[in-house]
Design a protein around this nucleic acid. Structure first.
Lengths: 221, 221
DNA sequence: CGCTTATTTGATCTTGATCAATGGTAGTGG
DNA sequence: CCACTACCATTGATCAAGATCAAATAAGCG
């Protein structure tokens, strides 16, 4: 069920659960490389990995679960910037060697690889084969954020909720039930909607037979 | 008045108008390196640099003027994704060696440096000092797009228009008049608003004394 | 079981879109 | 220089999507 981690580094030389679950490239994870057990971080729900303005020291690759990036405005409003799922990167601004400008927090129980920015920088400096892969990664991220922007700009409430449900369903097919890992409130914050609207849209889709809903169990029909 | 180009390459060895206007790093621009006159491209208003789905061959750095990235949806609606101004990059997806997934078009008369993706890739492979600078660039781009997302998600019409006006005013101070380089319609498309709304907001700000408006001449008060 | 947190549903309100009409401005060619 | 034209900007009236306010369940969970 785990997705491969998109990474910018070479295959791990020794046993590593991350690689063993099918990834092409390994991340230079402090835990992975120093430890034969490849002890990634396991996070409980609601655990923050870092807060806005924290000194930016590490980059994270999500192995399992969902995190979210948020930013707080001067007036206290919180905006969820994006959902970070399996195989995606968080905190790349650490490579700029300054403070994080977003907060990153686990929404579900999650497993992440933690890589120090220093390690990444060293690797970029010394390994000829890595920079292009890293650049490719970042451009893919850029693509993803633009995609979100496109969504927020043009899609109405129902389209956005459908897109989110599709993403959260992963590779679950039609007719197969899956469990929503997020609450209506969390979904609404990520989509820039009110939670009541998310609820109404989901009920509406159910009434029209697009999906079947049993609490947090959803089936596409 | 020109902004420095953010670039990932070393200082130009010989005379180059781009560098001479104060940039730290030069872009490996086909025109610049092959030609002592450093003949960047000059674009007329409304000139497209590339269209969606075109083979992605070049990366562009804006020297002067404003361009916009757009994407067309299946139903024909066009979404403006972002404004690309002096010092910023467009078309970085060319490094992925596939097709452009956005269109890039000049909104005003503009000057850009054109760099072949091949050149950039070669430089990343062979020059030890460049990758980190390039990665830094991309992360800054990522930051900018997230910023847009933040805007679109949390700001209301007036806040968005104000943010755009602030950006377009550049380093013009309070009390100094500047000329809007974009029409109300173009602004509205970039902000995801109706052009009537942009007009109303601008008039409203003028009525309340925040700005002074004379057609496309604007003064912050 | 009792408490907290999620979810659903209804009623009403606000923002900004849309429709429609008019006035301005800049560029073009005579 | 002026008239013509095409685009740009403003303003008003109305409408709709979704936010907000309010309240009643439902679902977890110690």
């Amino acid at each position: 069920m785990q997705k491969p981690i998109r990474g910018w580094f070479q295959p791990a030389p020794s046993s590593c659960p991350v690689r063993d679950r099918g990834i092409r490239l390994r991340t230079v994870c402090e835990e992975c490389s120093g430890n034969p057990q490849c002890g990634q971080l396991t996070l409980q729900k609601r655990t923050p990995l870092y807060l806005e303005q924290d000194p930016a020291t590490h980059v994270f690759a999500v192995v399992q679960g969902y995190l979210r990036e948020t930013r707080t405005m001067s007036d206290g409003r919180v905006q969820s910037l994006r959902l970070v799922g399996p195989g995606e990167l968080g905190g790349v601004e650490a490579l700029l060697d300054r403070n994080y400008y977003t907060a990153l927090e686990a929404l579900t129980e999650a497993v992440v690889c933690r890589v120090s920015a220093e390690t990444v920088r060293d690797t970029l400096r010394t390994r000829v084969d890595q920079p292009l892969a890293m650049v490719t990664e970042l451009i893919a991220e850029l693509d993803a954020v633009r995609e979100s922007l496109h969504w927020v700009g043009t899609l109405d409430a129902e389209e956005r909720v459908l897109a989110m449900l599709a993403r959260l369903s992963g590779d679950t097919g039609r007719g197969v039930e899956f469990k929503l890992p997020l609450t209506r409130l969390e979904i609404s914050e990520l989509l820039g909607l009110a939670h009541e609207t998310v609820s109404r849209v989901i009920q509406g889709l159910a009434r029209r037979g697009t999906i079947r809903v049993r609490g947090r169990q959803i089936t596409f029909l």
